[in-house]
């Protein structure tokens, strides 16, 4: 479904991605782990072109999105993204955050958009907050709204960029539950995370990145329990203490 070939990204002299090549299948849940600065977030952001790759290609369902003629806005409608810092629109209500893209891009009436948005808010457990502004929500609630917002366009792929890193510990569980149920529903997902337990539990495949390379990839058991790579071992021994 997603095919990434020899992806490079560099800022000035700083090479962040040094040739990433992987394929991700439809319905697959892929977790990317690795130390800070390993390029995992940059890699994720390349998948919806929030970062423009310096070299290499990405194709989704056979369409080469890194092509200069590709319709980026159309592509992004099929790729939902959830950010570390939620990035909800503070001047819009929870409901409006979710309906915005439906009204603007799918040209739905407010009623039609609501019919899609309310069930999504119910799914993340926040239908009762539909008419409040994001500033009155807790971090965990904000992130669940952000997930509902990303799901509104019915994307084929969901990207999670350290979705729980900015949350208070007691909020993490609720958000992870939502992401888990999404994973079980068959959504194709790429998840950058520091939650090793979560990565182990929901992923079909775990990718360990370091220094702009994919060091290792495999099933959670292979990577977490039977890794042969010294760099993976060193990283895991630090985070799994």
């Amino acid at each position: 479904m997603i095919k990434i070939d020899n992806l490079h990204k560099q800022y000035g002299d700083n090479q962040v991605l040094k040739g990433i090549s992987i394929s991700i299948n439809s319905g697959e849940v892929v977790s990317i782990i690795g130390p800070s600065g390993s390029g995992k977030s940059t890699f994720l952001r390349c998948l919806n072109l929030l970062e423009t790759p310096t070299a290499g290609s990405i194709s989704i369902d056979g369409e080469v999105i890194t092509d200069s003629h590709a319709d980026i806005n159309k592509l992004r409608q099929d790729v939902g993204m959830v950010f570390q810092h939620f990035n909800l629109f503070p001047h819009k209500t929870v409901l409006q955050n979710v309906t915005l893209s439906l009204e603007l891009l799918k040209k739905m009436t407010p009623q039609q958009a609501q019919e899609i948005a309310i069930p999504l808010l119910q799914k993340v457990g926040l239908a009762d907050k539909a008419n409040v502004y994001p500033s009155s929500l807790s971090g965990g609630q904000k992130q669940r709204v952000a997930i509902a917002r990303a799901l509104a366009m019915q994307p084929k792929i969901m990207l999670f960029d350290e979705a729980t890193s900015a949350l208070d510990p007691e909020m993490v569980g609720d958000v992870l539950d939502v992401i888990k149920s999404l994973a079980h529903s068959g959504m194709t997902m790429v998840v950058v995370t520091h939650e090793m337990g979560f990565a182990k539990e929901v992923s079909d495949r775990v990718i360990f990145m370091d220094g702009g390379h994919i060091v290792e990839q495999g099933t959670p058991e292979q990577v977490f329990d039977h890794t042969s790579q010294p760099r993976t071992q060193a990283f895991l021994s630090k985070v799994l203490r």
Binding site: N48, L50, N73, K74, L75, R76, Q77, V79, G80, M81, F83, N87, L88, F89, L100, S101, L104, L105, A146, R149, A150, A152, M153
Partner: peptide, 9 residues
């Protein structure tokens, strides 16, 4: 970024 990620121009 959030707006663009939704597909807005």
């Amino acid at each position: 970024e959030a707006a663009r990620s939704l597909g807005l121009s």
